[in-house]
């Protein structure tokens, strides 16, 4: 279980899929690879519900390392650099499609 502080503002629940390691976001009843599908928690009670879902889903061995992260209240984008990088995937062109220069 990831030991992360629960954010105070709007947040969503994320984890990695147990089988594939893929980043996933909690929709309220399932996991999605897209953050657009994520269930946003805007108050303490809904954040607690996400926390509970994190434990349930980890215990059910569907995901690993579930935790909540904060969203910018205005833009809805992740606040943390780390979450922005997770969301965007590697920012580089993967080598398989990059012919080498001299």
């Amino acid at each position: 279980m990831a030991k992360q502080r629960v954010p105070k503002g709007p947040s969503v629940l994320t984890a990695n899929d147990l089988l594939t390691g893929t980043i996933v976001y909690w929709t309220g009843d399932d996991w999605s690879a897209s953050m657009h599908d994520a269930l946003r928690a805007d108050d303490e009670a809904s954040r607690a519900a996400l926390e509970a879902a994190a434990r349930t889903e980890e215990d059910a061995n569907r995901v690993v390392g579930a935790y909540l992260f904060a969203l910018d209240p205005e833009t809805g984008a992740p606040v943390a650099l780390r979450e922005r990088q997770r969301l965007g995937g590697p920012s580089i062109i993967l080598p398989i499609s990059t012919p080498r220069a001299a």
Binding site: G21, T22, G65, Q85, R86, P90
Partner: peptide, 21 residues
Amino acid sequence: SEDEFKPLRLKNGLYLQLHAY
């Protein structure tokens, strides 16, 4: 559990990184 499995996978070089294992 993941807590039980993590030290075993790490001893076999398997990490969970940002996007995948």
